[in-house]
Amino acid sequence: MTLRLRIGFMPLVDAALLVAAADTGIAETHGLALELVRDVSWSNLRDRLHVRLLDAAHMLAPAAIASTLGIGGVTAPMAAPILLNLNGNALTLSLRRFEEMARVATGDLADPLVSARALATLVSARKASGLPPLAFAAVFGFSCHTYLLRDWMALGGVRLGEDVRLEIVPPVRTVEALASGEVDGFCAGAPWNTLAVEAGVGAILHCGVDLIPDLPEKVLAWRADDVERRGEAVTRLNAALIEASGWVSDDANWPSLARLLAAPDRLAAPAALIEAILRGDIIQGGGRPARQVPSYIRFDAAAIRPDPAHADRLLAAMGRAGQVVVTPDLTERARAVFGPLLMESAER
């Protein structure tokens, strides 16, 4: 019998496995009818999952941990029996700040250490002349974007949240916030960085992989108590996503995948631009040529395997960002979010 599942997603390139499973017929071959529901905020996805208006949701890996541990005011335990991707983020500066940074850089800006030091120079120059601090945006507090920003700035001795303001801006507003000068830079997933460059308001400084490679970005989240109760549905969806991962990783399918993602009820973004992102051809802006970035975003079989070690890395990043004090108990609970057991049963 076909199982019907409602899955919430945000319009981002890393919803690719969900879109591929739902829109190519892969889900049907695994006895599933998937209804993908587009949403506007991670908080909504978490709440809709919690009250079971959704069966599963596209979720930021750190948000799944935070929600499970109850840090940040909400406790809604989740389990991530499979990941949806690794990487996929980039750090974009407004053209003005990019040019300023290029002027003060002592070396190649493509080197994160050089760029972070250039940022430090700008930060202290602004402080000395009484200018307001720079502002950088992430799309959610508990996100790899926050940690990438924080850890990159730390290379130059700049403290995010103290020397530089951190703003939370929804992805749909990132380009506008950069254009208006509300923020000086942002870290977000695809396609938002590319869109900012295309719009002529930003320059991509670093891709996520340049800063911290293979960070677990999005997971497929279920309510923790549903994972056991609805084992059959979880196993089938895992199997469908594993097959989708094979399809999505085959470069012959990128033009079709880009068209599916571009649809008005999916990302509603130009297919050509999405296809370039899938190929890892990243336009940089700021007068530099496009760059080929291997593993800019990873959907392969190894990438989507849940691993408790992911929890260790993310929890450590959350600790460095001052969001949590890491204890053995928290570590154990966070590791349980990425249990590999169900994945193994889907592979069988």
Partner: peptide, 9 residues
């Protein structure tokens, strides 16, 4: 409202 995440933060 897409700014809900910002409000929460």
């Amino acid at each position: 409202n897409p700014s809900r995440d910002a409000l929460a933060d």
